[in-house]
């Protein structure tokens, strides 16, 4: 599908009112893996909201990215329980293994590394997620083995 068609498919699921803005952006984020500028301009027209509103929302919420994200999203939890059990060290280890800082994507766009306020599995701290899979009771020396299947 071309990009306009992909966007058209998303927009066709909605009534086209301002309240659809966040769900539409979520769908675009899922479909394109980021929020491309040109698509956002079309969204503003379709929903009849100012482009400023789209830009405000796109930059306010954490799940949106204006830059392309990596193929695999790694989320390292920095919730309280994870913080106390070495979550920060986990982020640093993953970042170092992949040569990427939190909030960024690797150069080959294979991975994006994000930190998250809480993933809600606090009893298994420290915790990380790759895409939809959870990894509980992490330790820095488990990182290489866990990353391996996701590498190109």
């Amino acid at each position: 599908m071309t990009d306009p068609q992909r966007l058209e498919t998303i927009m066709s699921r909605y009534a086209g009112v301002a309240a659809d803005l966040i769900p539409v952006l979520q769908d675009i984020q899922d479909e394109f893996n980021y929020l491309p500028k040109d698509e956002l301009k079309v969204v503003a027209q379709h929903l009849n909201v100012p482009l400023t509103r789209v830009y405000s929302v796109a930059t306010f919420f954490k799940m949106f990215s204006l830059e392309p994200r990596g193929k695999h999203l790694i989320r390292v939890c920095l919730g309280t329980a994870c913080h106390l059990r070495g979550g920060q060290r986990l982020v640093e280890t993953v970042g170092r293994r992949l040569n990427v800082g939190p909030g960024h994507a690797t150069e080959d766009l294979q991975f994006s590394l994000e930190t998250v306020g809480c993933l809600g599995s606090c009893a298994q701290a420290p915790l990380m997620m790759i895409d939809d899979k959870y990894f509980g009771r992490m330790a820095v020396d488990k990182v290489p083995k866990i990353l391996k299947p996701y590498k190109p």
Partner: peptide, 21 residues
């Protein structure tokens, strides 16, 4: 869409209406 402040009810409502939280 990822904002702790949206647990606050007026911010939650703002985001449900399609605005920043």
């Amino acid at each position: 869409a990822g904002a702790f402040v949206c647990g606050e009810e007026t911010a939650l409502i703002a985001s449900m209406e399609g605005d920043i939280g």
